[in-house]
Measured scan of single mutants.
Amino acid sequence: KELVLVLYDYQEKSPRELTVKKGDILTLLNSTNKDWWKIEVNGRQGFVPAAYLKKL
């Protein structure tokens, strides 16, 4: 499993997105899109802007 660090808080703006908090370490599911990465948070899957995340 690949992990990502959340660099900035992000509030979901659609049902396909997820809310994340700065400092969270989460599972990366897909990073093929350069702008939006798919991650998992508490069993939910969704997208967060790639600029808000850093691969560990």
Score class of each variant (00 low, 15 high):
17 E>P: 08
46 G>D: 02
1 K>E: 14
7 L>V: 08
3 L>H: 13
29 L>I: 15
7 L>G: 01
5 L>V: 13
1 K>L: 14
30 N>L: 08
36 W>S: 04
24 D>F: 06
2 E>K: 08
2 E>I: 12
14 S>E: 09
21 K>D: 04
45 Q>P: 07
10 Y>A: 01
30 N>F: 07
13 K>W: 05
39 I>A: 12
17 E>I: 04
19 T>L: 05
1 K>H: 15
21 K>Q: 11
16 R>G: 15
39 I>N: 01
22 K>V: 07
25 I>G: 00
22 K>L: 05
19 T>I: 04
48 V>H: 01
9 D>A: 05
30 N>V: 09
47 F>H: 06
51 A>W: 10
33 N>W: 06
2 E>C: 12
35 D>M: 12
53 L>W: 01
40 E>K: 05
5 L>H: 04
30 N>Q: 10
25 I>S: 02
17 E>D: 08
39 I>M: 05
2 E>H: 13
16 R>C: 15
4 V>Q: 00
39 I>E: 00
23 G>Y: 04
25 I>T: 06
33 N>S: 12
18 L>E: 03
50 A>M: 04
38 K>S: 09
28 L>I: 06
48 V>G: 01
4 V>S: 01
5 L>S: 04
10 Y>E: 00
36 W>C: 07
13 K>H: 10
9 D>N: 10
39 I>Q: 00
22 K>H: 07
23 G>D: 06
54 K>D: 08
56 L>H: 05
54 K>S: 12
11 Q>C: 10
26 L>A: 15
51 A>Y: 11
22 K>A: 14
15 P>F: 10
17 E>N: 07
51 A>Q: 13
16 R>E: 14
27 T>W: 13
37 W>L: 02
26 L>W: 12
22 K>Q: 13
37 W>K: 01
13 K>P: 07
34 K>I: 11
27 T>G: 06
2 E>T: 14
31 S>G: 11
37 W>S: 02
22 K>I: 04
4 V>T: 02
16 R>V: 13
41 V>Y: 14
25 I>V: 12
37 W>A: 02
12 E>V: 12
13 K>Y: 05
52 Y>H: 15
30 N>E: 15
28 L>C: 08
48 V>D: 01
25 I>C: 05
56 L>N: 03
3 L>S: 08
6 V>L: 02
3 L>I: 08
4 V>K: 00
30 N>M: 08
37 W>N: 01
23 G>R: 02
43 G>E: 09
10 Y>D: 00
55 K>I: 14
29 L>T: 06
11 Q>F: 14
46 G>C: 05
24 D>A: 10
51 A>D: 12
5 L>M: 13
28 L>N: 01
19 T>D: 04
19 T>C: 06
20 V>R: 00
26 L>P: 04
6 V>T: 04
12 E>Q: 13
5 L>K: 06
14 S>P: 10
33 N>D: 15
39 I>H: 00
43 G>L: 06
28 L>W: 01
46 G>S: 03
19 T>M: 06
51 A>P: 09
27 T>V: 14
41 V>W: 11
30 N>D: 15
42 N>K: 09
1 K>D: 12
28 L>Y: 02
2 E>L: 12
55 K>P: 11
41 V>Q: 13
18 L>F: 08
29 L>V: 14
38 K>V: 15
13 K>F: 06
42 N>C: 10
45 Q>V: 13
41 V>S: 15
31 S>L: 04
49 P>I: 02
46 G>T: 03
12 E>A: 12
10 Y>R: 03
23 G>W: 05
47 F>G: 02
3 L>A: 07
32 T>M: 12
3 L>P: 03
12 E>R: 12
49 P>H: 03
51 A>M: 12
47 F>A: 03
4 V>Y: 05
47 F>P: 00
38 K>H: 15
9 D>T: 06
32 T>C: 11
48 V>A: 05
55 K>Y: 10
13 K>L: 11
5 L>A: 05
27 T>S: 09
17 E>V: 04
55 K>C: 08
38 K>D: 05
4 V>I: 06
26 L>F: 11
14 S>K: 07
10 Y>L: 01
25 I>P: 00
42 N>F: 08
34 K>H: 12
43 G>C: 08
26 L>V: 15
10 Y>M: 01
38 K>N: 08
8 Y>L: 11
36 W>P: 01
37 W>R: 01
13 K>D: 07
55 K>D: 04
6 V>I: 04
56 L>C: 09
44 R>C: 07
5 L>D: 01
14 S>T: 13
29 L>C: 07
38 K>F: 15
50 A>V: 07
35 D>A: 11
30 N>T: 08
24 D>Y: 06
13 K>V: 08
38 K>Q: 14
24 D>N: 07
38 K>L: 15
10 Y>K: 01
7 L>P: 00
